[in-house]
């Protein structure tokens, strides 16, 4: 398992804990966090890994959203579809991520697809449920007024129902984004990509603390940043929601 990572190739410069080559006592002693080393390796390790991580998250979230959104619209129109899709996505959600990555290696190999598929599956339940509930919670009288004024079914969906479901949809995206950011570190286990790579690398080399904490810390910051990002989007995109009464 670990061997897979060792073949990754593009890992950072591996410090020699005991030897004298590095000339940096912090690194030699495997200190808690060697700021110098982090800085030296920012541009060739941490920064590209961070960008990869963001890309992975965005792509997984986008695919997950397209699938769940379509499924939610379908389930909104045809109620029978709700139960099977909820069951299906809940089932996927319960599979341990490590196991799912491992199983997929046998099918899709050590590829981007193997990393992406589990990430996408973990977004489905929350995005589907939130979108569907957001639509279902549109007050009946609002829908009826829209119909009574001569909006077509499509106009009601796009101009009334979806805008009203937007806070729920964005809340779903917020949680899904944080989930994917954290799971994407595990994805490096099967595909040498994102902040998971330096984390596995650090463990593989005897738990090099600076690299572990540097990459792990960036992953945590990215999770917080994506949470904040959707909070801002919420506020800007749904100014009316602030006035909504309980």
């Amino acid at each position: 398992m670990i061997g897979i990572l060792a073949q990754g190739g593009s890992g950072p410069v591996i410090p020699d804990f005991g030897g004298g080559g590095a000339g940096n006592s912090c690194v030699r002693d495997n200190g808690f966090f060697c700021w110098n080393w982090f800085q030296q390796n920012w541009s060739d390790t941490f920064q590209p890994r961070l960008i990869e991580h963001i890309e992975l998250t965005v792509v997984a979230l986008a695919i997950g959203f397209v699938i769940s959104f379509a499924a939610a619209l379908f389930a909104y129109r045809y109620k029978w579809f709700d139960f099977p899709f909820t069951t299906f996505s809940a089932f996927l959600y319960t599979i341990p991520s490590l196991a799912l990555f491992q199983v997929l290696v046998g099918i899709t190999g050590l590829t981007l697809a193997t990393a992406l598929i589990p990430l996408v599956t973990y977004t489905l339940l929350i995005l589907f449920r939130n979108t569907l509930i957001g639509l279902q919670e549109v007050p009946d009288e609002v829908r009826e007024a829209a119909r009574g004024m001569g909006l077509t079914r499509r106009q009601i969906l796009w101009r009334v129902e979806l805008p009203l479901a937007l806070p729920a949809i964005l809340a779903g995206l917020q949680i899904a984004a944080v989930t994917v950011v954290s799971l994407a570190t595990v994805a490096a286990f099967v595909y040498d990509h994102g902040l998971g790579s330096p984390i596995f690398d650090a463990i593989n080399r005897g738990t090099f603390k600076t690299e572990l904490i540097g990459a792990g810390g960036l992953a945590i910051l990215l999770g917080i940043a994506s949470y904040a990002f959707f909070a801002v989007i919420q506020r800007v995109a749904t100014p009316w929601a602030r006035y909504r009464r309980a």
Partner: peptide
């Protein structure tokens, strides 16, 4: 045509049915 018909008829209901997001 049902939508044309409704656009030509004012409709007021008890709970107003105003669009909260507009």
């Amino acid at each position: 045509n049902v939508t044309a018909l409704r656009r030509g008829i004012g409709y007021v209901i008890q709970q107003t049915g105003l669009f909260p997001h507009m």
